[in-house]
Simulated assay, not measured.
Amino acid sequence: MKAPVSGLIPAPLAQLPWRVLFLVIAIGVSGWVVLFSAAGGSLTPWALRQATLFCAFLGLAIVLSRVTPRTLSRIALPGYVIVLVLLILVETLGAVRGGSQRWLDLGFIRLQPSEFMKPMIILAMAKFYDGLPQVEVRRFGPLVPAGILVGVPFLLVYLQPDLGTGLMILGGGVTVMFLAGTPLRIFIGAAMALGIAGPLAYNLLLHEYQRNRIAIFLNPEADPLGTGYHISQSKIAIGSGGLTGKGFLQGSQIHLDYLPEGHTDFAFATMVEEWGLIGGLAVIVAFMLLIRWGINVGLRANTRFERLTAGGLATAIFFYFAINLMMVMGLAPVVGIPLPFISYGSSAQMTVMICIGMLMSIDRQTRHAPGGGW
């Protein structure tokens, strides 16, 4: 979009992909409405804070859009090392909440380094493969350093324990490996190895609560009032919404406290109960349009690093969206992945806004001549 002739709007603002930003804002506003309803028609304690954080992180995304892809390439590996050090510090100095050691308490803020690793692993892997000749990508040698780059943060996050975030980090790294041209036989072999080692990992590596989540996913009715309660109540909320929903502030599952975590991980179920299938599909279409834009940014990108980064960032947003929806509908185990902009909380909002900001940076570089930015 070009700056208006009148010059009333500064060129950096006029150059932003406003259709995408309006789409993101629309998703965010729908999330505020869901949280307003979940609180019984009150802006506190969730909707107002969510809106404030959204605006702050949107500003962060716009700032990131002015950082050139060349700068992103330069900071990829140093940034990865810094976040990796923070993950190590979490293991030694981290604050414990809810039985998990995932945060660094800095006094004025609780920092969760694993969230920064989600986009950083994509940058680091894109930088690594950008420096390899294409003929080397198809050989076995690069798999070792690539596996270390992905495996070390995955293990550190798994030990917190946070399997959901660990899988997101692993998925981001593997996506870049695939997009870079790693032979398909490597992924098939890895899948077969995981299938063989799966029973052993289930019994020796997973915590008891993680094994329970898998068991309940396979048979939710086995313990409908215990570990299967979340999924059962989520399905009831989604199914009872019908085509058009029960109406704003009329969701019985959330307002009668049947649906646990109806403002966080299961916010989509809260929304569909009141907005119905039509409302749910509207949010799904909005996310798909956002992801489609990210993929198109990668397809138009000028350099290999930009293509790999854009594809990885778009996939990271897809993972958030797809895993949460599968989770609340009982199609995947409950792994604590929120739906960005809909679920209450700062972590997912921040991570996805960072992804959007970097995608806008690559998009700006594609649409405009080099120059400008930082």
Rank of each mutant, 00 (worst) to 15 (best):
Y258Q: 07
L111P: 06
R307N: 10
W46I: 06
S252C: 03
V150K: 11
T270Y: 00
L170C: 14
A124L: 12
G312C: 04
R110T: 03
V335E: 02
G345M: 02
A14Q: 13
M329R: 10
R304W: 03
A76C: 13
F305W: 04
A269R: 07
S6L: 03
V334I: 15
I354E: 00
R364K: 14
P183V: 04
L21E: 08
V34A: 14
L23V: 02
D130T: 08
G262Y: 01
M1I: 06
A322T: 14
G242A: 06
T264Q: 09
L331F: 15
E91W: 10
V150H: 08
T44R: 03
P220M: 00
E208V: 15
M360N: 06
P199V: 09
R66G: 12
E115H: 05
S347A: 04
A310L: 12
Q15Y: 02
V352D: 00
L72S: 06
A348F: 05
V297S: 02
G166E: 02
M125H: 08
L204A: 14
A38H: 12
L256W: 12
I317M: 10
I9K: 09
V285N: 04
A201W: 05
F341C: 14
P260W: 05
E208D: 15
D130V: 03
P338V: 02
P370S: 13
L308P: 00
L8V: 10
A146H: 07
S65C: 04
S37W: 01
L277E: 03
P119E: 12
M192P: 02
A269N: 04
F140N: 08
A314C: 04
A11L: 15
I27Q: 01
G336N: 04
P145A: 07
F57V: 07
I148D: 00
M271R: 08
G164T: 05
D265Q: 08
A39R: 01
L170F: 15
P183W: 14
G79D: 02
L60V: 15
F108G: 01
T175N: 10
M326A: 15
S343L: 04
T52R: 13
Q50V: 12
G41M: 00
M117H: 10
M271S: 12
I25R: 03
G239D: 11
